[in-house]
Amino acid sequence: MSEMQQLKAKDYKSDQEVRWCPGCGDYSIIAGIQATLAKLQIPKENLVMVSGIGCSSRFPYYMDTYGVHGIHGRANALATGIKVANPDLQVWVITGDGDGLAIGGNHMIHSLRRNVDMKIVLFNNEIYGLTKGQYSPTSPRGLHTKTSPFGSVDNPFIPIQLALGAGATFTARTLDTQPKHMKMVLEEAAKHKGAAFVEIWQNCVIFNDGAYKEWTDKRVRDEQTIQIVDGEPMIFGADRDKGLKIEGSEIKIVRADEATVWNSRAESPGAAFAMSQLDRHPEMPRPFGVFRQVSAPTLDDMVHDQIKEVTDAKGVGDLKDLIYTPDCWTVE
């Protein structure tokens, strides 16, 4: 491709006015995705953005790519149909904690277990935004919302854990306030062949503002979060003096020089699962980065390989053979 034809991030923007609330984390995410697509020079006509319902799901309208704004919770199913129908397309699912984990939870786990080659970006703001502030499947216990005026009594999902449990071949977490980290994760996801699940902590300024500030505020984030990188020791803290050590299924805080070297490509999801469990422990830092990244056959490839195999063996089907079978008879 010549210099002239290089696609820039802005080339992926549609002519539609973006209508998220001022200050919404979604702006940072769309910029991150556009930058990633430009970096990888994915042709616009080969991209399909698929969404369900919710604030995040308006995303396809703002992209100058192909797109389907579906119905609530069904983005993964629509996207599976698109990808299997035409495996040459790069398919992105844009969803949220309500759309993807409540009403669409079933399609989410099944598209992950089937390893459909698509990028699933889950905007997690721990709240229902478009319906104006009800608790979601990721809202913490005790959260006061319009439908939980005395505090939510639901136990939340840990999205990473759900994805790992469903057999996702790529599972990662990043956050809207750290565009550099987000682009790194999105690029890894885009390059992954198979279902790539990316949870993005996204702040809803209207209905759940500051949901993550306990971890992500500049003053505390070095102590309260940890970036995990494949092949590097898991070190955190303002002075980079602390580390995480994995012992069996337990994780302990240790001195930096005792930290375990993170391996996101392990055959077993055990360590990744243990890391995801840190969310249940207030005294532990929250991990960000790629939890798991393994290679496995994709549904779309297998479907078409099978068609090719059978066609090679039997020959391209002739319509007449479908109608005129050996058991037919003729009346003169």
């Binding site: 399909v48 698929v50 192909y66 389907v68 579906g70 119905i71 069904r74 199913a77 629509l78 996207a79 599976t80 149909g81 698109i82 990808k83 299997v84 129908a85 035409n86 397309l89 079933n106 399609h107 099944h110 479907v303 099978q306 068609i307 059978v310 066609t311 063996a313 039997k314 020959g315 391209v316 089907g317 319509l319 479908l322």
Partner: peptide, 28 residues
């Protein structure tokens, strides 16, 4: 009917069945 280039997907539920079909139609 694989050698007739028929794709079939046994989905997780009825809704996924119709939604994959709609997605496939969008894709041609």
């Amino acid at each position: 009917m694989k050698n007739y280039d028929v794709v079939t997907c046994q989905m997780e539920d009825e809704i996924a069945g119709v939604c994959t079909a709609i997605g496939a139609s969008y894709a041609g």
